[in-house]
Design a protein around this nucleic acid. Structure first.
Lengths: 167, 167
DNA sequence: ACCTGAACACCGTTCAAGT
DNA sequence: ACCTGAACACCGTTCAAGT
């Protein structure tokens, strides 16, 4: 009989996601993760190889959900851009672990990164160089906003309007 | 007689910068720093309050040197943009500690952040919203490049050309 | 005034031992 | 098959003690 209570890989990744959402990357430790599963940290290593495997799982989830959010948005550049910002601000920790730390390419499903990248490129047409600039613009805006680099009186709605106009 | 050998605050910040350049943010630990100064980690706390003070010092240095590099560049938007990229790629760890982790505003000289921000705004004219978009564009390009997010066959020189054209 | 060892509360990870 | 305690090599930081 399968142990439906045991900290299987599935359960581990569910709790890891919870922990990331609540505490951010810094709060996602193997020991804290084990605590929530009511086991000791060394026991985790019977289910996952290392912490990277957990991070890779979260990155895969981030790419997947982020891709879906952009896909669901309206077809216009403006709608896509606003969906990008909205998703990132609603999922700051998932955005960060997916895009602000090295992507563990060897440990996420093949094609997942490419799929998202291609989708972003499709927003602007066929020119890859232009598309990269557009992506960088949206990423830069979100990254600086999450990092609190813009003054508190900055009108970011207007900034995004200008950014979309630049595209 | 003053102790010219002792790990004064000045000596600490010099070695901290060396350590950051060589090993990056992750390699900058109080213990590694103490080792290079040939003292024990607790001794550092007679000269600095905590690790944040060291990080704030490096952020101040980063803002200063980054500002100078942009100032020295030619007056055109293109020259400024290329100087931005050049400095960031030549000083990736300093760029990262200055812009990719929370800025310790209370612990760096007042006006330093504002000075750099204002300079970036001056590149594009008087419109702050537009300037923020331009800054985000340059930051996003550099951040994604350093993070290795662009495919290896990407023509980033061309991408920057397109980006400058968008401004 | 400056430096130290010991300690505390943390990390990720390994491994022999228990069930 | 799964979990454990003990251990190792790390963190930042405090504090009583030494010079």
């Amino acid at each position: 009989m399968a142990n439906t209570n045991g900290p299987t890989r599935e359960r581990i990744s569910v709790i890891a996601y919870e922990l990331l959402k609540e505490k951010g990357i810094a709060g996602l430790s193997m020991r804290a993760l084990a605590d929530r599963l009511h086991i000791k940290a060394p026991s985790l290593y019977k289910h996952v190889a290392d912490k990277e495997e957990i991070i890779a799982g979260l990155q895969a989830r981030g790419l997947q959900e982020f891709g879906n959010a952009i896909k669901r948005a309206g077809k216009s550049k403006r709608a896509k851009a606003l969906a990008y910002r909205k998703w990132a601000l609603e999922n700051p920790h998932l955005y960060e672990i997916t895009v602000s730390i090295p992507l563990l390419r060897d440990r996420i499903p093949v094609g997942l990164e490419d799929g998202v990248t291609r989708m972003i490129i499709e927003i602007t047409g066929k020119d890859h160089e232009h598309a990269r600039a557009v992506w960088a613009l949206m990423h830069g805006l979100v990254d600086l906003e999450i990092a609190g680099r813009f003054p508190k009186d900055a009108d970011l709605e207007l900034t995004w309007k200008r950014a979309v106009a630049m595209i």
